[in-house]
Design a protein around this nucleic acid. Structure first.
Lengths: 161, 161
DNA sequence: TAAAGGCTGACTAATTTAGTAGGATAAATA
DNA sequence: TATTTATCCTACTAAATTAGTCAGCCTTTA
């Protein structure tokens, strides 16, 4: 089992899409800036998310990505799964052949743990996250950071630099 | 967060000690054979378990390792922790400085998940595991395998090979 | 004093992570 | 039609970690 920035980035990016739903396609450049994730890395993650039908894409200027399903129907477990992070805690992928073809001493313990984690993560949808107070607060902070940056860029452009 | 064979081996080995409690010190060679874990790797893991006061050692012939506390007072979370597997799911070790000094969009989600996992694992002691039906069954199988091997070794020795 | 067993440190192949680099393709706009 | 914006795709990389192996030293018991 592992949960690293890969899975965390994927969930964060999907949540960003959910937060900006209804504003048309969102470009990876926007997500990259708001969430502080490398653009090229996002491209790799979205290739997987797209292959797993979680998002749809629109190419060309004004293009970007959109959720392929209502945000209430996408749970966190699926997103992590889509980028190949394995939330299974057993060494044998639940096959039960961990010790030369038979179950090892602790096999059932790791199965129980895996169930626990999966139940937790699949019980949380993107819609649930959007509603959370802490998520709303962070989102507001990110929006204001972004508009500050845009204003600064405009000033620079207007002054001819 | 990661949970790999390292943590699983540590818990398995500690459970082996718990199962053979009262029989004096248990050698790593015995655990290695019963659990199918490389001896040198076990030595590395037990160095950490000893540093964390979870086990005590007796050197010399007839020596080995013993639990340093009653098995009902050692929980799975501590064991995994002792071998440096991090069960924390956040990227910032709960510090909350995940996005340039401030919390990222999904920080609280990963905190909740970490709590969930930690509560689960710290609620299970070695004594609980020893009592489990599936653990008992696997343990019986391992004992019989081991005595089969010993008998085979005896026959070979007796026949002068 | 030899053997059993713990203890230590250095080394290694393989895998994964978190990227970077460079370009191809598609669509909108000037 | 040319340029720009954006997705798409493949290949490469440094660093870290895992799951070991190897070699040898130190203690204690028989």
């Amino acid at each position: 089992m592992r949960l690293t920035t890969k899975g965390r980035y994927a969930v964060t990016a999907m949540l960003d899409l959910a937060l900006h739903e209804g504003k048309g396609p969102i470009s990876l450049a926007d997500i990259s800036e708001r969430q502080g994730i490398s653009l090229s890395y996002l491209e790799q993650l979205f290739a997987k998310l797209r292959r797993n039908q979680l998002v749809g894409s629109v190419r060309g200027p004004g293009g970007g990505y959109q959720l392929n399903r209502p945000k209430a129907e996408i749970d966190v477990a699926e997103v992590i799964d889509a980028v190949n992070e394995n939330v299974d805690a057993t060494g044998c992928n639940r096959r039960g052949d961990c010790q030369s073809g038979e179950v090892c001493l602790t096999h059932h313990l790791w199965c129980d743990l895996s169930d626990q984690i999966h139940t937790f993560l699949s019980g949380i949808t993107l819609a649930d996250l959007v509603e959370r107070k802490d998520v709303k607060e962070v989102s507001i902070r990110q929006e204001s950071r972004q508009s500050e940056k845009m204003i600064a860029t405009d000033i620079r452009a207007a002054s001819g630099l």
